[in-house]
Each structure stands twice: as structure tokens, then as C-alpha cells.
């Protein structure tokens, strides 16, 4: 059962030795259960900060963020958060299988625990990401795309209800990136998770999301949200349809309003 994510008038100020930097100012985000929402915006507009606030890794200076009915800290305890970054961040001394099971080794602090079903055993996850047979490989033997897929499997290992992705495909080459996009879509559609994905890439945002939230640059604030009404499941070829291109154009226009015309 996936959960909703809600950010209300979120504000975050970096307090670095006397210098205050307002990273986010009045950010609102509304993710319904099972929705896939992308957050796009120029470099430095605070997208990663937003994600960290949702994950409970940072505490907001003002405003609130909730996952389901409680704060991120509660979701952390229930291990409801799946996290993926631009770098895979695998532990080099562990095999692929051991990396995937890392989240399940962390002791749950709540009596709720997590239902472990047959869907998220290491074997099932390896099959899901298409790396069956690689269980005993070490990270240094894998390509970039493979490492990211392992990172995705790891994010799903504790059966989270919420998936937070910070430019997960940015470090990949174009070909791998394109195929990974469709894999991610497939996995997210299948698991029915609530997803927030930060990305620079407008095509990616339109392709994968139900909604796209636009964040302006410093300080970051949500200026607009575009609902993507494209049919699901998203299949190959949808990027060439008129509707898709129109959405992409719309995002481009929305992003060039404001001081920053340069997306990246």
C-alpha cells in the first residue's frame, strides 16, 4: 500500500557559519498514493534539498512535510522510504546480493515491521532488474548502468511505500539511460509506489510522470504543476506522439519564465 507525500510551504535555510542561504522558500508538493511526480528545475534550485527534506535527512526551517499521516521520521522507522541517488553508492566490499539486502539488515524499530513477500527477496529483485546470475559479483566488476540497477533493487529491498529518486539516471550514457527509463517505469507501475523523482531532463519527466512540479531557482519555490495525461502503461513510441511533444513544450515554456533561461 503506497502512501501520500505532502509538502506544505516548505522552507529550508542553510546556516553555514554566519551566512544564511535560503535554499527553498514556500515549496508545495502533493503526491497522491501511487503517483509518480517529477520535480524539474534549473541547477541549484534546491531539488536535491527538497528530496532530502522528504526523506527526513534534513529538518525544515519552516513548513511541514509528511509521508502518509506522519513525519518522515516515522516513515524512516517503518523503513517506508526507498532512496536512490545519482551515484549508485554501492558498498565495494559486498557482493551485489549483499548490497541489495543491506536495508533489510537494519533493525526495524517498530512493531509494524514490513511485510516481506516473495516479491522482494534478493533473487526476485535481481530478476526484476534483469541481473539474474550476478548475485556474487562485486561492484567493481559492474558497468555504471548495472550498478544503478543494483542501487534500484536495494532501494526496493525493504518494500518501501515511497520511492525518492535524485537524478538516478544522470550519470548514465544516453543509450543506457533510455532503456533504464522504461525499466523504471515498468517497475514503478508494477509496484504501485509513490515516487518523487528529481530530474533535469524534461523528456524524462514527461515520459515517466503523472505530474511534473516546476521549481524555480534560488530560492526554490514551486511555480507550477503540470498534470501529464498520457495513457499508462507508457510504452515505446509515446515520445513521438503529439501530446507528448506538447507537454514537453509546455514545460520548456514554464521553465523559461523567470530569471534563469538556462535549464542546465
Amino acid at each position: 500500500m503506497s502512501q501520500s507525500i505532502k509538502a506544505t510551504q516548505l522552507q529550508y535555510v542553510y546556516d553555514g557559519g554566519g551566512r544564511n542561504l535560503t535554499a527553498l522558500d514556500r515549496v508545495d508538493l502533493d503526491v497522491k498514493p501511487g503517483e509518480f511526480v517529477s520535480v524539474v528545475g534549473p541547477s541549484g534550485c534546491g531539488k536535491s534539498t527538497l528530496l532530502k527534506l522528504i526523506a527526513g535527512l534534513l529538518v525544515p526551517t519552516n513548513g511541514s512535510v509528511t509521508i502518509g499521516s506522519g513525519p518522515p521520521a516515522k516513515a524512516q522507522k517503518l523503513k517506508n522510504i526507498g532512496l536512490m541517488f545519482q551515484e549508485p553508492g554501492l558498498l565495494p566490499w559486498r557482493t551485489v546480493a549483499q548490497n541489495i539486502t543491506l536495508p533489510t539488515e537494519i533493525a526495524p524499530n517498530s512493531s509494524y515491521g514490513n511485510q516481506s513477500n516473495s516479491d522482494n527477496t534478493p533473487k526476485a529483485l535481481l530478476r526484476l532488474i534483469g541481473l539474474e546470475g550476478f548475485a556474487t559479483y562485486y561492484p567493481k566488476e559492474l558497468s555504471g548502468g548495472m550498478k544503478q540497477r543494483v542501487a534500484l533493487a536495494r532501494a526496493l529491498a525493504a518494500s518501501p511505500e515511497v520511492l525518492l529518486l535524485d537524478e538516478p539516471l544522470a550519470a548514465l550514457d544516453d543509450i543506457t539511460r533510455t532503456s533504464m527509463r522504461y525499466e523504471l517505469i515498468r517497475i514503478c507501475e508494477y509496484s504501485n509506489l509513490s515516487v518523487v523523482m528529481v530530474t533535469h531532463n524534461l523528456r524524462e519527466a514527461v515520459l515517466m510522470s503523472d505530474k511534473v512540479a516546476i521549481l524555480t531557482s534560488r530560492p526554490g519555490s514551486t511555480t507550477a504543476t503540470v498534470t501529464i495525461n498520457l495513457p499508462r502503461p507508457r510504452i515505446q513510441g509515446i515520445e513521438d506522439t503529439l501530446a507528448f511533444i506538447e507537454y514537453e513544450q509546455k514545460l520548456k515554456n514554464l521553465l523559461s519564465i523567470g530569471t534563469e533561461t538556462d535549464i542546465k
Binding site: A55, Q76, K79, F85, G89, W93, I106, A107
Partner: peptide, 26 residues
């Protein structure tokens, strides 16, 4: 330590002891 893994472990509410043995020491 790898900040990505540190963030990951914190998002799972890992204790300092778990972080020490699973990440810092290796």
C-alpha cells in the same frame, strides 16, 4: 565514508552502531 550510503542508512533510521559496523569500519 560514501555520503550516498550514509544518507541511505539514515533514511532507514539506522543506529550509530549499525552505521559504524556496516559502513565506517569497513
Amino acid at each position: 565514508v560514501d555520503p550516498v550510503v550514509l544518507d541511505l542508512l539514515n533514511s532507514l533510521n539506522a543506529s550509530r552502531r549499525e552505521i559504524y559496523f556496516k559502513l565506517r569500519l569497513p
